[in-house]
Design a protein around this nucleic acid. Structure first.
Lengths: 215, 215, 215, 215
DNA sequence: TATGAATGAGATTTCATTCAT
DNA sequence: GATGAATGAAATCTCATTCAT
């Protein structure tokens, strides 16, 4: 039990240190040596736990992403309506990226560019979360909330692309300012652009007729 | 003059080679040695023209981007209407990225992640093009095409983020398939979401009133 | 007693595993880790029994060689004639090397090149067996089977050198084919080259003289 | 021309240094660092000339062996008689090994154990020289100098095995004493063992009959 | 201007070995 | 006695960069 704890601890220390160092310097400018120093272990110990520098990189998102995705999944059941689900998932990404800046830096600046990552285990969690988003959009089409002619993949790409773009800039500018909440206005635009207007529209028109003129 | 020409030639060879090699392998996995081989010059010659590997990287987008942006600018004057301008600029990006895959790989996968690039000369062209987009959106607000309450920065980020997202995936998947034209549907959604519906709509409704009853 | 037995067992497992791994990969390419895995013990346990990797290497031939040499010694008493003894000892080497390929690989490719091995315990058995060979040759000189002028050290070196050379090649070629029996033809040549031809020949000639003529 | 000289010089320095260091410490205990120091170049320079430590190892015998084999070949034409050729080639090996102890250490203790070396370029020279020996033995069979029933491969293995055995021991014992000339006595034994005795023998028998006794 | 040649400075990775439990 | 866990110490190899010619 103690051993288990200790192991967990060291494993986690390394992951945490790697997240920090990779997040700050980027994969290529980070060194195992610095990660080891940050984790308080020897370089050799890192290789006891991870086969290579790349393995270590790929091992990071597994836990964090999985946790976040699990949460999203559990939440998903309680939310009614495609639009609400999309908002929830979007905020899931937003909060995850904002509250774990090293993580988002890592994912956006290093992992996403790595072809091999797409074959790695940790990528599955990313895919799962992307799947939720797709399902929500699809659900909206089926329920009639969204127009029939929209492409769910396009919409998802727009949402994710926008989120990534904002965090991208945030990281490049040194994460100095708090990142503003762009999620709601973004979704207002996108959902406004895909909402099925036929029915609702009739309800929203108020016409005040001018008094009939009498001759 | 001959020297100038010759120099220009060598300079261009290096830039071209660097674009190709960086684009294919990424900045960190590219070597000066391979660039030199590709350019048909010696490694030392590269250092005659560029101070460092990073300088070489930053020097690449300058020409290509500038050219593209110049074209956009010249075109801009002939296009009427914010929406049309946005479409034109978006297609400018799209075509540039699609027709120059090494360039887009470089920009999206390497340059965009480099803080120092934001201080480099080549970044200015990128900024100029982004400025056009912003102006067009702003113009749409002023003309009443777009709603008053929308944030032009948000809209621009959505457009650019979506474009980048698509090309991102294209590169990661090995540029195998042709990249589909997502620009029109994307703008349909976004512009649909920001269009000022008040005025136009009133023109499209035809109401036939029942004859007024007289009492 | 149980402990002793258990210990003996573990000791042997390690020796066996080391013989296998060293024999297959060579000393330098073998790792303690693989030996431990093969032996079914932990790496640390190996260090309970042997002080270092080199100690382990040197410990291996002791038992095998000793056994083989004991057998040779016991047999030696029953064989009459230098030539027969030489043949018997040569076949002893041949069978030992052929039937224990990992052992012969180890001895020929690793141990024989190690200066320190000459100071190690296991080397003594090797020396003992080489001593038998020398004695047999010497015996042949003394008995008049072999010429007076031959150098027993030379002859021994020729026999051992040839045997080693053949097994060497066998190992380098991957032990694919069965190793042919070169011992008899080799000894035919060598013994043919050192046999004392003077006396024996006179015994073997039968001359039938013509009847003596009387004057 | 100067460049050529300089290059040749550096290339040779490295080969020489590698020969020395590998010869003294063995391949695995030698370090690139020490070879670089010995050669008076940087470690990186070694990698400019040779792709890897193993490449460097394999590059060594090429020159030395080739030279020696060329000499043997040119000499071969002038020597008459199989026996003389065998003696000449054997002395070729002997002198080469004795006069270049680092080289013979390298060949006998490192290269000969390396399976990959058998596929390397430098191995060809070794094979060529072994071919000469085989041819000479074959020639002796055809000319009737040697018996019909002997196996040339066996004889070659005996000669080479003996030579290697002697040098082996010499190296293991620290090359302290001069290595004695064992070639002539060795060949006396071997050639004595394979020489075609039929004709000559009849000439050598002298029988002195005792005076006939009269009864 | 152009470059062949050289290298400084590190980075990743491996493994024999140790030691607390 | 047995071992899981940790690491010190190196070793090979890479590459951007420099400089004499």
């Amino acid at each position: 039990m103690e051993n288990d704890y200790k192991s967990k601890d060291k494993f986690s220390s390394i992951i945490d240190a790697a997240l920090k160092v990779f997040g700050e310097k980027g994969y290529y400018n980070a060194t195992i040596s610095e990660i080891a120093r940050t984790a308080g272990v020897s370089e050799a110990t890192i290789y006891e736990y991870f086969g290579s520098k790349e393995d270590l990189l790929f091992a990071i998102p597994g836990e964090i992403t999985s946790q976040a995705v699990d949460f999203l999944e559990s939440m998903n059941a309680y939310i009614k309506g495609a639009e609400n689900k999309i908002r929830a998932i979007s905020y899931g990404y937003f909060n995850l990226y904002r509250d774990n800046p090293d993580y988002s830096s890592l994912v956006l600046l290093d992992l996403k560019h790595n072809r091999k990552f797409m074959e790695a285990e940790g990528y599955k969690a990313v895919q799962r979360s992307a799947g939720f988003m797709l399902n929500a959009i699809q659900e909206g089409k089926e329920s009639g909330e969204f127009r029939e002619d929209i492409d769910p993949y396009l919409v998802r790409s727009m949402i994710l692309g926008t989120i990534e773009h904002f965090f991208f800039r945030w990281h490049l500018k040194g994460r100095k300012d708090e990142i503003g909440d762009f999620i709601d206005p973004m979704l207002d635009v996108i959902i406004g652009g895909i909402r099925n207007e036929l029915e609702p529209r009739s309800y929203q028109i108020n016409i005040t007729l001018p008094p009939a003129s009498t001759a």
